[in-house]
Design a protein around this nucleic acid. Structure first.
Lengths: 274, 274
DNA sequence: CATGCCAAG
DNA sequence: CTTGTCATG
């Protein structure tokens, strides 16, 4: 039994733009108790008034970690119905803690939720090196956190845009992407290592042996219409969370068939419906 | 008698944006024989397909002088029902000829039309120096051209965004703008000198002793709704043109009450209506 | 093909 | 406040 029933994660690709296109309707209508946001791309004082109003009206608490290093970039947040008991920005990595890529909140009932925006890479460049370095230190954090959860009986979910498609099931054209960042062998191995360590991929566990469900489609071409997507938005959970999971879904067109981001919300249910 | 009957000028503030907002409807509906455009902000190959289609459908010839020095900036053009007999980019000033600020076409029937986008200044800065320098050399060109028209019997109209409000009648808050570029004493003196030389302000001649009609309103605040505008878009004509002028108007909301630029089209009629 | 930044208007 | 650029995704 976990104190949170429904968790969602979505990369909004700019909360200001998304708020004009349907994010607010989605926030008003979702049954989630916790929503992790990525690519907020705004400081607290830059949030649209209508966004703040929607949060107030629907009883959301907002905690955010904007980028302090590049304005209008990155930025993660956690919305929760319950007020967080503790908030941590970053994961103790001086190289990335101020980049708006990770935020962790402790919620009432012994659940910790992390919102992650893992760097995008470009194979063979310094950007890939930075992504790999992030994975290394973040992997250390995840292992430490996992051990602490096991020791204390706490449960934890790390949700966000991982920028990694873990297997051939997780992107439409895997053959053509074997040399592209997001599907590089060492990236998949890193992700697989997390699962071997005990973390559960809550969406894949609910949908084994099927293509997708994808959560990101390029804005270019007709990628969305043709469902040429990638499953790169993941919720990883501790064993207690995994045991409680009873459903997972991607909302391809989240708000009255309108798209308001190049990513779609990914939602996991814990416990029985109702 | 002049071979052109209706001339318009309008600063479109980006032909790509304007084409999505109502410029095309206006072009399809206008009775003008010649339209001078400023701030086209596109190279020929960047023109929207729908813009080109509208020109084709309604029998417009297009001649343009994009900026070769800063992409996405400036750019003037002339649309004419008749095919131009000659086209000249710039006015023989190496400092500005490639900036997309002046284009001159000779039309059948002995009429020359110039489309002008005079630089915007900022009082007390190098930008003002550049504007003043442009005025000096452009003034020389206008005097030379005027003399040639007188000598040959040719008529001429120079239409565009002059970025100068000539008198206290030509902007809403003239007292507060005496130290601002566009209403500086030496700019007004320069403009007055053109009229003394024989050029006619075709719009002011049709509407003497009244405030406005303004042709530009800032996008900031509620300038348009409150008609806090400037008359900075002018058509200057040779005496034969001035004698033929029978009407002038600014189309505040040019296309079904929609605005598609911060400037409005300014139109002059030569000869009797019909 | 979107985002927000920026310089420019 | 809006344009088009640019770097980024």
């Amino acid at each position: 039994m976990v104190a949170v029933r429904v968790l969602s994660t979505v990369n909004v690709n700019g909360v200001r733009a998304a708020s004009t296109k349907g994010l607010l309707d989605w926030l008003a209508g979702t049954a989630a108790d916790v929503v992790c946001l990525q690519e907020v791309r705004a400081r607290p004082e830059e949030l649209p008034e209508a966004f703040r109003a929607t949060l107030d009206e629907h009883g959301w608490h907002l905690r955010m970690a904007p980028s302090e290093t590049a304005k209008g970039r990155n930025g993660v947040a956690v919305l929760s119905r319950a007020e967080p008991e503790a908030v941590r920005v970053g994961f103790g990595d001086p190289a990335t803690d101020l980049d708006g890529r990770y935020l962790e909140v402790d919620l009432p009932g012994g659940v910790t939720v992390g919102s992650l925006y893992l760097p995008k890479g470009l194979a063979g460049t310094e950007k890939q090196d930075a992504k790999d370095a992030f994975c290394k230190t973040f992997g250390d954090h995840l292992r430490t956190a996992f051990g602490r959860c096991v020791a204390t009986g706490r449960e934890m979910v790390v949700a966000g845009d991982w920028n990694i498609a873990p297997t051939e099931l997780d992107l439409r054209n895997w053959r053509g992407n074997r040399k592209n960042s997001g599907f590089l062998p060492h990236e998949r191995a890193w992700y697989a290592g997390l699962l071997e360590h005990g973390w559960a991929d809550l969406v894949r566990d609910q949908h084994p042996d099927v293509d997708g469900p994808y959560s990101w489609w390029s804005y270019r071409g007709r990628a969305f219409d043709n469902d040429v997507g990638w499953r790169i938005d993941h919720l990883l959970g501790t064993p207690g969370v995994a045991a409680a999971a009873t459903g997972a879904a991607v909302e391809r067109a989240p708000s009255h068939d309108r798209r308001w981001s190049d990513h779609a919300p990914v939602t996991v249910r814990l416990g029985e419906p109702g």
